[in-house]
Write a protein that binds this DNA or RNA. Structure first.
Length: 163
DNA sequence: AAGAAGATTCGCT
DNA sequence: GCGAATCTTCTTA
């Protein structure tokens, strides 16, 4: 798995300039989905990360497919398993995530939810700077499973930045 | 009202 | 490596 944090006060975050129609789900209680449409073509999935009324979240950039691989291949058009969900746009295609999922509670909704990581993944997380930003480039707020082939960007550990 | 940029991906050079 | 695809949001270049 690969994620990027967009915490409160982050100038690169969608909630930096306050709540809008688009980013409203970032202001839901932690654990809700924030889905937005980007580049006229792709959806991106985020998880709200603060209490109600505070806008912050985590972008889910990549996943390692475990189950439902055939279905994901159908949606993605026969791409290699490694590429099914390696990248935020690919991930939402493979999972059939769109604006209908915006605002759902990922802790209780039967259609889309988050589980808890197996203990074997604990301690296997590394960090780098985030991808594709023009602001706050130096923050090492991208997190991924060290050694995994199912991540979308650099797998090197960058120098830790002050936070 | 109009234009530019954007947490991307894919295909072609 | 570069540009197209294609649309929402924010800013006024």
């Amino acid at each position: 798995m690969e994620t990027e944090a967009y915490p409160v006060g982050d100038a690169a975050g969608h909630a930096f300039r306050g709540q809008t129609r688009r980013n409203g789900s970032l202001y839901l209680t932690r654990g809700h989905a924030y889905v937005y449409f980007i580049y006229g073509m792709y959806y991106c999935l985020n998880v709200s990360s603060e209490r109600a009324g505070i806008g912050a979240g985590v972008l889910v950039r990549a996943l390692e497919p475990i189950e439902g691989i055939e279905l994901m291949k159908e949606r993605r058009g026969s791409s290699p398993v490694r590429d099914l969900a390696r990248g935020p746009g690919r991930l939402t295609v493979a999972m059939a995530i769109d604006m209908r999922d915006d605002g759902v509670d990922l802790c209780t909704d039967p259609s889309l939810w988050l589980g808890v990581a197996d203990s074997e993944y604990r301690g296997r997380v590394s960090a780098t700077t985030r991808i594709g930003l023009s602001r706050e480039r130096s923050r090492a707020w991208r997190f991924y499973e060290r050694g995994s082939a199912f991540v979308s960007g650099p797998r090197l550990v960058s120098a830790r930045s002050a936070s």
